[in-house]
Structure formats: structure tokens, C-alpha cells
Design a protein around this nucleic acid. Sequence first.
DNA 1: CTGAAAGCGCTAACAC
DNA 2: GTGTTAGCGCTTTCAG
Lengths: 341, 341
Amino acid sequence: MSRPLNRPLTLRDVSEASGVSEMTVSRVLRNRGDVSDATREKVLRAAKALGYVPNRIAGSLASQRVNLVAVIIPSMSNMVFPEVMTGINRVLEDTPLQPVVGITDYLPEKEEKVLYEMLSWRPSGIILAGVEHSDASRAMLRASGIPVVEIMDTDGTPVDAMVGISHRRAGREMGEAIVRAGYRRIGFMGTKMALDHRARKRFEGFTQALARAGIEVADQEFYSGGSALSKGRELTAAMMARSPDLDFLYYSNDLIGAGGLLWLLEQGYDIPGQIGLAGFNGVDLLHGLPRRLATMDACRDEIGRRAAEIIVARTADPVRAVERIVTLAPTIERGDTLRPL
Amino acid sequence: MSRPLNRPLTLRDVSEASGVSEMTVSRVLRNRGDVSDATREKVLRAAKALGYVPNRIAGSLASQRVNLVAVIIPSMSNMVFPEVMTGINRVLEDTPLQPVVGITDYLPEKEEKVLYEMLSWRPSGIILAGVEHSDASRAMLRASGIPVVEIMDTDGTPVDAMVGISHRRAGREMGEAIVRAGYRRIGFMGTKMALDHRARKRFEGFTQALARAGIEVADQEFYSGGSALSKGRELTAAMMARSPDLDFLYYSNDLIGAGGLLWLLEQGYDIPGQIGLAGFNGVDLLHGLPRRLATMDACRDEIGRRAAEIIVARTADPVRAVERIVTLAPTIERGDTLRPL
DNA sequence: CTGAAAGCGCTAACAC
DNA sequence: GTGTTAGCGCTTTCAG
């Protein structure tokens, strides 16, 4: 029972089946130019009957237009990125543009490779996460001659356009809020940050805010891999054993924060009196936990939307000036784990 | 400060810059055929200096080969699918094939549209979720003449190949395990299942297993949208208020199950003595909860891997016979919420 | 080992 | 409204 590996149909097949020239068939199928209703009917019928699917490879080569937008992100399992994708999708849905996703696994070399692959398809625009890229990547982006939007982070200089939040500032503001709420013995937990620039920047902003208040991070711990929730438990248990006098824990993401929260509640800690907690991201998931973790929205959906809008605007009219740098302002959600002022 | 919307480079540019014919430049860039080291050097140097990125549109048209694999899934925020993607990626990484993702939002019309779009790029293979598709979609798949692997679910007839688990059987087995553990007053909570065929099949298998034991589902509730964790709480609270005598709750996914678990623990229920719980999927997240929810692994990663392997095998050698139907066998993880036998 | 010619399937641009 | 012509940038094929 082998399937019929038959030659794919071409415009010519539809042309012959309908008795209309290839050119007119092409016009009908693309809704371009005036075609009489009679011919249109004939063509559509023939195309459907044959099951013709146009060949965009040929079409794109001929028209020098490719309605693809390359979206390059570090990971799909990080929750954050699917949400950014949702924002992008919503905007592109109303346009002829189609997103195509590439994954870098947070590896600069892989980013370079993926970018090269993507560019070889001559997309209409590129959206990529982060502002730190290899020299080769930057060169490719610049040479591509297409709109490029770097997203998530605005602490840096974009090749072209940029949409995101300042993670340094996000960390700083959370640090300030914590200090203002009266906490003094503060621990930090997060991913190993060698390649996670945004986590690093949040940490930098955070320590800076503490420093201004004359406080140092009392304890810290970094992890990699594994289920974030249980990591949060483990790290928290270990840190509280080591530094039982801590009165606040700042987590680099909500999931490990949630794990810590669950553990502390089980141990009978008084939250947020005895100890306060905060995470980062504002993930939806938190809404089902026993307490709402204090966090900061990363504006994921809006970042996706704004980035896509820039691509759309530039694609429609490459000349018109559009905002090049969009800095969104995340707000602190105090939840139930950050003492009220 | 407008960017240089310059003409993209072509092989010809590299040819002229290096003084080597276009044809030989092409050979060097694709590592095909024998080229002297001297020329190879010259070409590579020129290409890099110019920042040349080949045009795959033209290349694919000429060679009639496109190294893309279309992957069509309902959603990216469902956790399940990113994990399937991971499996697919791992296999394709070692090949020239590249996955391209399309999202259907569980809508048949959208699936049809996305499929059409994808096919218009003449991919080397298609992986798509589910076995229920519109007639038009099936027709397109059949006419495409390329390997098609339907994934997740094996309760149905594939167009070509199929990799997944039997959701009907999964539901049945969980039902049997619950009955065997001695539970009798059983409630069910899940998504509205009009378009989620897999959830529906699990439910069918589940009720069938209960029926065989002379039991009917004592209460049931369906939801849509919202944060799954808090939905789980709400649904559970409502159901326990309505049917306080339930001794088991079966959830159509782990996230709402986790929400229910948290709520029940807070209310002081004795789990699994007074009331037992089970979900579906085996999501990693559960490992950080106060109790491990009983669940059933959906084999997401393996499904992705096996599907990709089929595509790879068929692409390498369209004639060689490969398994057409791969039914994986998920096992029950009893966790801490299903009474031991 | 290298090059020249032909054409992949479609569309831009121009006739009629 | 509809058809004709000439490529798009590359690779296949064949000749040297």
C-alpha cells in the first residue's frame, strides 16, 4: 500500500483543465487584477477539483516577496515565549504575514545558525529575543536589509528596533519595594546566569537597589535544569537551613518562587510577616496557589504584539518612521507575599 | 537614520568577487562535488567577506527539494506540545530537516488553512496532531505525496502513518485502577470537549470502565479557558459542595487536578483515604506539589521522536517500509493520591 | 576539477 | 479582461 508519489500539480495543470491561460489562473488564485466572474468560476472549480496547492517557492522567487516573519527565541518550554508568540500571532493573523519559529536553546552559536537558516528564506522581517548577539549575527542582521525587532529586553543597543522592558530596572524596582516594605535579610535564588542575560540584569538591578539602601544580598543560590517547582522547594529548604534568619527571598522566576512558597507554607512560616517572597514574570499559573506570589509582569503579550506591529508597519511602508525603541513599564503585583507598606 | 535596503547578494556577486564561476561557487557552498582546495578557499573567503547568505527559495525551486518538516499542532501554551516539539527537534537536529510550526487553536477550519499554507511550501514531510481532520484536509494530505505522520492519538485511521497512545484505553485503564482501588463515588472534571477529541476519548474510555464495574460517574463538570490551576480549585470546590459524598475525582489534565489537590489539602481532606485524585499527562510541574498527583504519562517526548524518525526514514528512502502505526503504552503513576491496592 | 546551458513554477510588466 | 514574454537565483545535467 505505497502512496502515489505523483508529481505535484502546477499552474499549467489548472490552466489546461480550465482552458484559461496560466497567467489568468494565477490572477484568480491570488485575487489580483480584474478577472471576469465567468473565468474566475471556471478556474476555481478546476483548481479545487484537481486539489491544486500553489507553489510558494516559485511564487516567492518570481515576486521577490516572502510573507514570512522569522521569530527566533531561546526555548519553547519557558512559558514566557509561547505567550510572546500568542501576541505576535494575534497581530499577524490579520495580515498576509506568517510567523516561522526558530529555537536557540540560549546558545549563541545556535542562534547564529538558526538566524542564517532563517535569512536564507528571505523573510519579510525578523523578531528575535534579546539584545546580545554574536558579531556575526549582528552583521547578518544588518546586512539582511529587512526590519529587525529585538524583543524582551531594552538594556542595550538594537540593530534596528527594540521592544521590551528594562530588566535592570525591573530588578531595581523590586529591590526598592522590598526594602521599603522593611525587609533586611534578603536571599536570592535563580538560574545560572551565564547565558540568561535578562536574569543577570534583573539581579544586577536588584543588588544595586539593595546597595543604595546599604544592604547586601545575605545568601544566594543558582540552579540549572530540572522541574522549576521542585527546584524552588529544594533551593529554599537548603537556603533556610543555611541562613535561618532570612526575612525575604527573591526568585528569578515565578515557578521556583511558587515551589519555595509551597515549601514555606508547609513548614508553617508566617508569610509575609516572618518572611516575604517575590518572583518574576506574572505567570498565570500563580493564580491557583494558596497565596498569590508577589511578582512583576513581564508584558509578554504586549511585547509580542508591539514587535509584530512594527514589522507589519515597516513591511507595509518601509519609509514611514516608526518608533524604534519601545520600553514597556512592568508594574509590581504585591500579591500576598510582600508585606504592605 | 534609515537602514540600507540594499539588494541582497547573489551567487553572482560571490562569483565575481572570487573570480570563480557561479557553478563552482555553488558547489563549494553546498559541499557537493570535488573542488580544489585553492578555489574552495577563494570562494569561502569571498562569501564570508561579502556576508553572502544563499537564497534557499531559488535553491529549492531549482533542486525541487525543501528540507522543511511541517508540524501542525493545536496550541503552544498547552505544555504538551512544546514537549512533543522537543522530541521532534532532537531527532531533526542531526539531519538537514528543519521543523516549521503551525498553530490551529483546535479549530478544524484553521487547521485546513494552516495545512494549505504549509503545503504551499512543499515540505518534505508533515507531522500533525490528531486523527480527526476535515475531508478537505485529508484530501490535501493524501494528494501531497509526502510522508504524513498523525500524532498523539491512535484511536482512528491514519492518512499515512500514526504515532501516539490510545486515549480511550488510557481513560479505561485509569477507570479500572480507580475502581480496583475501591473508590465508588467518582466525579469527573475536564475541558469542554467539543473539539478536544483526545479528552473526549479518555472520558469515553473512563465511563466505559466504570460501567463495566456497574458504576456511573456521580458528578461531572466542564470548563473552558482561564488559568487551569485556579479553575481546578473552583470546579473542585463547587463539585464538593454539590456532591460531598464523592470519594474520587478524575481530572482531564494534571493542571486542574493540581488545583483541586491544593484546594482539598487546604480544606483538610484526607488524601487518598477520604478522597482520591487523578489527572492526565504526567507533567513535570507536579513534582513540586505537596503530594504527587496520580497521573498517566502521555509519552509526549517519545511521540515527537518517533514521528520525526518516521519522516527522516521516509525522506531518506521513500520506498523502504517503516512502521505505519506506532501505539505507545502509557503507564499509570499512582503518586500519592490514589489509594494503594 | 570546472564551466555553460537549460529550466524549476511562478509573477511583473507589458501588450492586445 | 486576458495573453505573452522574460526572468527571479539557483541547481541539474552534460561537456570539456
